[in-house]
Structure formats: C-alpha cells, structure tokens
Amino acid sequence: MLEQRVSVIGAGAMGEALIRSLLGRDLVSAETLMAADVRRSKLDEIRQRFGIGVTADNREAARFGQVLILAVKPQQIEGVLRQIGPDLTTGHLVISIAAGVRLRFLESHLPEGVPVVRVMPNVACLVGEAASGFSLGRWAGDPEAERARRILGAVGQVFLLPEPLLDAVTGLSGSGPAFLGLVIDALADGGVACGLPRDVAVKLAAQTCLGAARLVLEAGIHPAVLRDMVTSPGGTSAAGLQVLEERALRAALAGAVRAATRRSQELSAGGSEEEPANGRLS
C-alpha cells in the first residue's frame, strides 16, 4: 500500500478508472484517497460508489494529497496548476495525464523543486489493460519514478522513457486502439462474408487479438514466432498472409504509427488544444 495520500483531480473516465484500480489493488484505502471535480453530480456518484472523500475545490484536494494525479483535459491544465500551485511543496508529487502537455509547461506553473511526472496512457486503462509511457521532470528521481510506476501499474503496463519518446508512445499505444478497432472490424467483416453471425464474428475477432497479445506478453513468444506457429506450408494462414503482404498491411500499420507520432509532435510543439489519442478520456 502507498504510504502517501492521493488526490485525483478530474473524475472523468480516466480519473474514475484510476480510483477504481487504486482501491481494487489495495494501493490506497478509501481514507487516503480523494477525488476533485467541478461536477457535483459526479462527485456524489464517486462518493457513493467508492466511499472516498470528494471536493469541488482543487486547493482542498492539493492540501489533502501528497500525490496529485491531474486527470483533466489539456485546455484545463493551466487553470488547475495555478489553483494548486500555492499549496504545493517539494514533498508533493504531481502526475499529469493531460495529453500533449510537456514537462516544461507543467513545471513552469508550479513552485521550483516540485517533482512532476508526465504520463501518456491509453483508452485500455478503462479495463485495467493500459499501455503507458511516463517521463520524469527535473526534480523527480528514483523514489518518484517508483511511486508513479506503482500507481500507473494499477491500470496496466507502464514504461519509463525520455520525454521526446512520449510522442512515439502516443503514435503507437495511444492511437493503437483506433488502429486495432479497424483491424477487429475488418476481421469480423471477413467472418460475416463467410457466413458467421455478426455478433459472433466480432467476439471471435476481438478474442483472437486478445489471445495473440497474451501469447506475446505472458508466454514471451515473439510475434514472428507466433506467426510461424500457426502457418503451415500451403495452409489457410499462409493463404491469408499472402493477401496481407500483397496489400501491404505491415507497411500501412507502421506508417500509421509514424503519421500519428508526427501529428503528436506537431500538436505539442504548436501548443494546440486539440487532444491526441486519450484526450476524450479526461
């Protein structure tokens, strides 16, 4: 269990997923967790569902928590930082999941010496299967990295990376669910064309992707080895793979990740309020 009290500022889908996972994994108790949000109805719902403290005052949340998780939209982040800044000390840890908001910006709106961590999660955090990257600010060291890893690990896998690589995380795991949604839909279309009921085809396609991912992650099977495991000479998989290679699926997916990464870089550099990949989760 974490020794520090935690405040989650922003109780939208992402904030609620973190609250649920932190409690469910016994990383915090209800007495050491608080949620802040401007929506009174949402706070009432959170209090009834999880039995934790709630507030509409971000400064109250900052005074309560030693770890502050900022789960608000990028266009709201500056206002939140200005509100909580006067109450923060070097003993706090600020974890931001605001898409595209860089460490330099976060630190410039907080007192000097406050440790900051920037995170790029993805939509699968809603089911505890996120693929997240995080980077450390100037005043965050090994203890803060370990604390962030434990918190973010409650909703999936997490990787410590230099901040410039978070754009690639956005392009791959942030945008990846959209790409895989297209893949699942296309596989299901193929199944329907071959006579399967639509609902069965969708579930078969989704479960097939899930099973393949678990073989890679849990059994440690390399994707190329997985391909060879189910591909016999002249067999069904070989016939299907030939079509995918002829139609350049591999190049298309790799190109999609590169394009999404470039767009993330453009949005971060330009200070756009458009939200890449995970923005609608806040």
Rank of each mutant, 00 (worst) to 15 (best):
Q4V: 10
V6T: 08
V6D: 07
I9D: 07
G15M: 07
R20N: 13
R20F: 05
L23M: 11
L23W: 04
D26P: 00
L27E: 13
L27G: 04
V28E: 02
S29I: 05
T32N: 14
T32M: 04
A35P: 03
A35L: 07
V38I: 15
R39P: 02
R40G: 14
L43T: 10
D44R: 14
Q48G: 13
R49W: 05
F50G: 06
I52T: 07
N58R: 04
R59A: 15
E60H: 13
A62T: 03
A62F: 08
R63M: 07
F64D: 06
F64R: 11
G65H: 14
V67H: 03
V67R: 05
L68R: 08
I69A: 10
A71C: 15
V72Y: 08
Q75I: 03
Q75D: 08
I77F: 03
V80W: 11
L81N: 13
G85T: 05
P86A: 06
I95N: 10
S96R: 02
A98F: 09
A98H: 07
L106E: 09
L106M: 12
S108V: 01
H109T: 09
V116T: 13
V117S: 06
P121L: 06
C125A: 15
E129A: 15
G133Q: 04
W139Y: 14
G141F: 03
G141C: 00
A145W: 01
A145E: 11
R147V: 12
A148N: 05
R150M: 05
R150T: 11
G153L: 02
G153K: 00
V155G: 10
V155C: 09
G156S: 05
G156F: 00
G156A: 01
L166T: 07
A168C: 01
P177D: 06
P177Q: 08
V183G: 08
D185Y: 09
A186F: 05
L187V: 12
G190P: 09
G190R: 10
V192S: 12
A193K: 15
A193R: 15
C194I: 00
G195A: 06
A201I: 01
K203V: 10
A206R: 12
Q207R: 11
T208G: 07
A213I: 00
A213F: 00
L215Q: 05
E218M: 06
G220R: 08
I221H: 03
P233C: 11
G234F: 10
Q242L: 14
V243L: 11
L244F: 11
E245H: 15
R247A: 11
R250M: 12
R250I: 09
A251H: 10
A252H: 12
G255Q: 04
V257H: 07
T261N: 09
T261V: 07
Q265L: 12
Q265G: 15
E266I: 11
E266Q: 15
S268I: 09
E274V: 08
P276L: 14
L281E: 08
L281K: 11
